[in-house]
Amino acid sequence: MVNLALAWAEQYQMLNSDVNISVSGGGSGTGITSLINGTTDLANASRELKPIEYEEAVKNGVLPQEIVVARDAIAVIVNPSNPVGELTLLQISSIYKGEINNWKEVGGDDLQIVRLSRETNSGTHVYFLETVIRLGDFEDKSIFSPTTLLLPSSEGIISEVRDNPHAIGYDGLGYITDEVKMVAVAKDPKSPYIIPSVNTVNNNQYPISRDLYIYTNKNSEVYINKYISWILSSEAQDIVLELGFVPIIAGD
């Protein structure tokens, strides 16, 4: 969600010339670690704070406060030449666990599946692990197949899926370009297959969607709280829509 944070910061600085916001990327873990260590005022995260991180923050004198600032959907993508257009959550889970290894097992061509994922420091990676691979079951300890390629950037995933008919990947809806094909996803075989879009996320039809957070210190300065309330305004939420994420107030 670094694109979103950057766009917000840019717009806000244009409106308030006395405010100076610097944004750096690196994944949710990076931001949360900086908040814990006190090197940043705001941590944008695409996952919730882990209990152990909360404890560490309190130990360092930071009281993390959670604010939902936008919503995001994770799209599952394949090469445009891949005939597979619909998958259930269970099928995606089996593919990423290494139980399904050929596209013909899910109705495609006789091609070996190449699994792509973001690196482990990405909030998208953790979210996909918990929601899709483990199907939301906290007792489940299955992990990505070790043959999964871990790519350091969204661009890396998009370009490999674009060029490679073997590939399956996933990424935030905001990063998906026209060069790849989005797969329609069903919660279970009986449910309808849904293509992710702003509409299907906001009315909770698309099964792989999540909230995006900003974490601050509870005792933070007035100017930080001002910035947060601006982010929740319709003006800032329009930017969310422009970048391909899902605004939180549109559903109300």
């Binding site: 873990g29 482990t120 350091p152």
Partner: peptide, 9 residues
Amino acid sequence: ASEMGEVAT
């Protein structure tokens, strides 16, 4: 390189 940024000291 890819994991150092995330890890807790």
